[in-house]
Design a protein around this nucleic acid. Sequence first.
DNA 1: AGCCATATTGAATGGCCGTTCAGCAATTAA
DNA 2: TTAATTGCTGAACGGCCATTCAATATGGCT
Lengths: 216, 216
Amino acid sequence: MAVAAKSKANADDNKGRKASKEFRRQQLIDATIDCLAENGYSATTLAGVSDRAGLSRGIVNFHFESKENLLIATLQFLADEYATNWKDAVAKAGDNPVEQLRALVHADFNRNVNTRRKLAAWCAFWGEARSRPTYNALCGARDAAYQELVRKLCRQIAREANHPGDSDTIALSLDSLLEGLWLRMMLAPQDIKLDLAREAAMEFLRNAFPKHYPRQ
Amino acid sequence: MAVAAKSKANADDNKGRKASKEFRRQQLIDATIDCLAENGYSATTLAGVSDRAGLSRGIVNFHFESKENLLIATLQFLADEYATNWKDAVAKAGDNPVEQLRALVHADFNRNVNTRRKLAAWCAFWGEARSRPTYNALCGARDAAYQELVRKLCRQIAREANHPGDSDTIALSLDSLLEGLWLRMMLAPQDIKLDLAREAAMEFLRNAFPKHYPRQ
DNA sequence: AGCCATATTGAATGGCCGTTCAGCAATTAA
DNA sequence: TTAATTGCTGAACGGCCATTCAATATGGCT
């Protein structure tokens, strides 16, 4: 899905040999996400990926050198997309920390980033992250910059409100809650839809900072 | 570690051929948890498991028929242990919903259940759960009964307090927060220790039900 | 048209891993 | 001591899968 990248000015080179290197890479990354979502990490094979992309067996090694590289590139893509998403959202929210934090939370449930297949792919990498340093580094999905920003915003808001609790603890809870909601959406998608999850996260904000996120 | 089970009255049959069937199974399950934690799901092999258990190659198929069965038994063990842990904790907490919920939260950070290796094993299964119905069923770690109880307790407490928010939403957030904290403890164990995670969860309760969980 | 560069193919290769099973060793019963 | 039972072993087998690479197809260029 959503193959956006194109290297040069040539627009619609999407089929056959005309496809640029960048396009092929993205095509294979998309197929990999599909396979991860459908079969899990352990059952994701190069044969499966190339079949799904409608290309031949050797194609991945041609474009990525190895399976490992393909998987890293896939995770890298997910991480970049995720980071771009929340950075854009915050940038659009203006200067107010309260609005910025609200935007950050909403960004997590953006329909572009928060797809079933992408959720499942993230989760597949989480499962392997402990044993692979490279994955672990990229899997700090909500990476250092994200966490730092959440902490900063919580601190600002808490100071304004003379909030009794420790703002860093609230920031940690918020991070974890968002990740936990993603995990639940993966494990039990029938129970918890996007709107419900976002509502749960907003309810958290209302409880943590009642003055800044009033009800109704 | 912590191999407790023994089938009959014979106590210290822990080595050699005397080991009972149950003991061997548990020994292999423990080795599997170690391998999952160390190598991840995809790199967990029967050779690795039997090596770690100090037994021969064919041992797993002898006791479990197949690798798949071993993994299911391992997940089953983790799920049972987890369930026993929170049920015991709640039982000891008396009749008060407030105390019961507090006990439930604390149970999640019990040092018996919340180990690095067990966390990592859980996470390994989460990554595969989407594509394997059997795992998915068992991976509702905080299973139906657990979630039902959390909802019930939140409802009771919220009613007493005339709480403005929807108690089911708070219950969902709490579930997700706890799972998210587990995930974070796995992905970044150096950043977040047991005490910090528990503190974050308790802070959530204080914010959600300030009258019932007062500060200090 | 003819040529070159290069993207792509797919059969061949080799390694790894789950499974099998005939045999061995330990324990128990007779 | 002998026989029978049963836990356990580890070599052998077969299948799957990542990787390689010589051959081929394609598009751009002159």
